[in-house]
Each structure stands twice: as structure tokens, then as C-alpha cells.
């Protein structure tokens, strides 16, 4: 009896997971085929799921391979490549910077005891949870005053608002897991503070750092609101730039779809290749 019930359960589980996966994957399928359709097919009244002529023209247009188009289309350069480059430039810098700022703080929170420690920890974490709109609105004018609007530096700095708390949240757990004894014996062996930190603690926490780095990379790349409000056209990252496939007379869905695919690839590929680290990062951040 038990075995039959077990088998029934398994069938149910597979159906449930199958349904869920179908829903998860369908949007990817849909946006992919939109990106390889011609414009007329995209606005066709009856949506075409399979029977349409596939074309790579949209991707070519995105990167300007081939002859430039004329009226009503993008002529000359599309800025898409620029957007992509902007994201590629900003994100690693933002992540690196957040590691520099966050790791020492996480280490201190994990290892040291001092008055107001939990209040400080709360301050950092609250920056992640609190609605960023409240600082973004004033920063719109503040950034202009300080010449940070529409600059790489400006975007890198504001991304720290979410990157650093995330780094601290995750790394604190990783550091706390490292046995203190290793550090203590190093001290006994004559290492000074810096040596302990750089030669022992940080290397041991490498998996944690990798996890944090991947998490913050994905979330920085995916960020939209900060860039929308504090960056103009020059340094626009690809997430915001994607929305600009709109001419005066129409919205170019097929181009937008191919842009979406390309823009989504980096975080997806990263996640796929390094999911072990991502999972560790996400879970250690949440589970102590």
C-alpha cells in the first residue's frame, strides 16, 4: 500500500513540477521567438507560435551588421552596444567596490564585540530593505549638483546602497562559520592582525566571497530603478536602455526582444555556471 501511495505521490510531484516549469520557461520561449520574427509577424493578430519565418535580422540590426536602414527605423548606430558596454563596465566595478567596503565590515561584525553592534548591523541591513525611492528622489538633484549624474562613478556609488548590505549580510555568516581557533593559533604563531586577515581569514572565506560576488553581480546587472533615475543617455546600462526601442511612430517589439535576450544572458549564464555559489550565498544570507 505504502509503495502505491508513494508512486502516486511521485506522479503528482512530477506533474506539479512539470506545470511549474512550463510556466517558468514559456516566457523565455516567447521572447525568444519574438526576437527572431519579422516586424509584421510580431504584430500579427493571430500570434504565431511555430509557423513563421525565422530571421536573425533583429540581432544584426541590434549590432549594426549589414546595411543601415532608412526611414522610421534606427539608422546609423543603435546605442545598444553602448548600453551593453556600460553594464559591462559598471557592474564588475560596483561589485569589486562593494567587496572592498563590505568585507571588513562583515568581518568586524562577525568577530568583534562592541557596544551598538546590532544597531550598526541593523543600519546596514535596513539600507537594503528600505525603499530606495526615498533617497533616489533627492539624489536626482544632488547628483546633478555634484556632477555625478550620468556618470559611471555615480552609478557605481549608488549601487553600493544595495550591494554593501547584501555583502555584509552574506559574508557575516561566512566569517562566523569560520572557526576562531584557526585565527587564534595563527596569532599564537606570531602573525599580526593584517597577516591573519589576509593570509587566513579571507582565503578561507573564499567560497563565501565568490558567492557574494556572484550574487551582487547578478543583482547589480539586473538593477533598473537606480539607473532609470540617476543615469542619462550616455552611461545608461542595458536594463534601462532596453526600453528605448520606441520611435515616434511605433514600438519595435522584435528589436526589443532581441535586446532583451542579449541583456538577460549574462546573469542567466553566470547563474547557471555558478549556481552552487549563488545558492550558498542566498541561503547563508538567510539561514544562520
Amino acid at each position: 500500500m505504502e509503495k502505491k501511495a508513494r508512486r502516486l505521490l511521485l506522479v503528482g510531484v512530477y506533474i506539479f513540477l512539470g506545470l511549474y516549469l512550463a510556466i517558468v520557461l514559456f516566457p523565455f520561449y516567447w521572447i525568444f521567438i519574438t526576437s527572431i520574427k519579422t516586424e509584421k509577424d510580431v504584430i500579427a493578430y493571430i500570434p504565431k507560435f511555430f509557423r513563421f519565418e525565422a530571421t536573425l535580422e533583429n540581432y544584426a540590426d541590434l549590432f549594426q551588421i549589414g546595411a543601415p536602414k532608412t526611414t522610421g527605423e534606427f539608422i546609423g548606430k543603435t546605442p545598444f552596444l553602448d548600453y551593453l558596454l556600460n553594464s559591462l563596465k559598471v557592474v564588475p566595478a560596483a561589485v569589486g567596490f562593494s567587496l572592498l567596503l563590505g568585507i571588513p565590515a562583515a568581518y568586524a561584525l562577525a568577530r568583534y564585540r562592541f557596544p551598538g553592534k546590532e544597531k550598526l548591523a541593523f543600519f546596514y541591513i535596513s539600507q537594503y530593505f528600505l525603499p530606495p525611492i526615498i533617497v533616489l528622489l533627492p539624489l536626482y538633484t544632488i547628483y546633478q549638483k555634484f556632477g555625478l549624474y550620468d556618470t559611471y562613478l555615480g552609478l557605481i556609488l549608488i549601487l553600493q546602497l544595495v550591494n554593501v548590505p547584501l555583502t555584509i549580510l552574506v559574508m557575516r555568516g561566512f566569517f562566523a562559520e569560520l572557526p576562531v581557533e584557526i585565527e587564534e593559533s595563527a596569532v599564537i604563531d606570531g602573525c599580526n592582525f593584517w597577516q591573519v586577515l589576509t593570509k587566513i581569514s579571507i582565503p578561507l572565506a573564499a567560497p563565501g566571497i565568490t558567492a557574494t560576488a556572484f550574487l551582487t553581480t547578478v543583482f547589480s546587472w539586473n538593477n533598473f530603478l537606480f539607473a532609470l533615475m540617476l543615469v542619462g543617455t550616455e552611461k545608461m546600462p542595458v536594463t534601462v536602455g532596453m526600453l528605448s526601442f520606441q520611435t515616434y511612430v511605433k514600438v519595435q517589439w522584435n528589436l526589443m526582444a532581441s535586446a532583451a535576450i542579449i541583456a538577460a544572458l549574462p546573469p542567466l549564464v553566470l547563474a547557471f555556471l555558478f549556481q552552487k555559489y549563488l545558492v550558498r550565498g542566498l541561503t547563508l544570507g538567510a539561514i544562520k
Binding site: V24, T34, N222, A260, A263, P267, L268, A271, Q275, L278
Partner: peptide, 21 residues
Amino acid sequence: SLMLLPLMLPPVIGTLMWTTI
């Protein structure tokens, strides 16, 4: 890994996908 995909997708793109759907 497949089930993790939507979390890694930039939300703006995910929303765009669903808006067209």
C-alpha cells in the same frame, strides 16, 4: 537550476516578457 531562472532574470525583462504575453 531551471527553477532558479526567473530570479536571475532582470525584473524589467521579466515584466516585459509578461506584458507581451
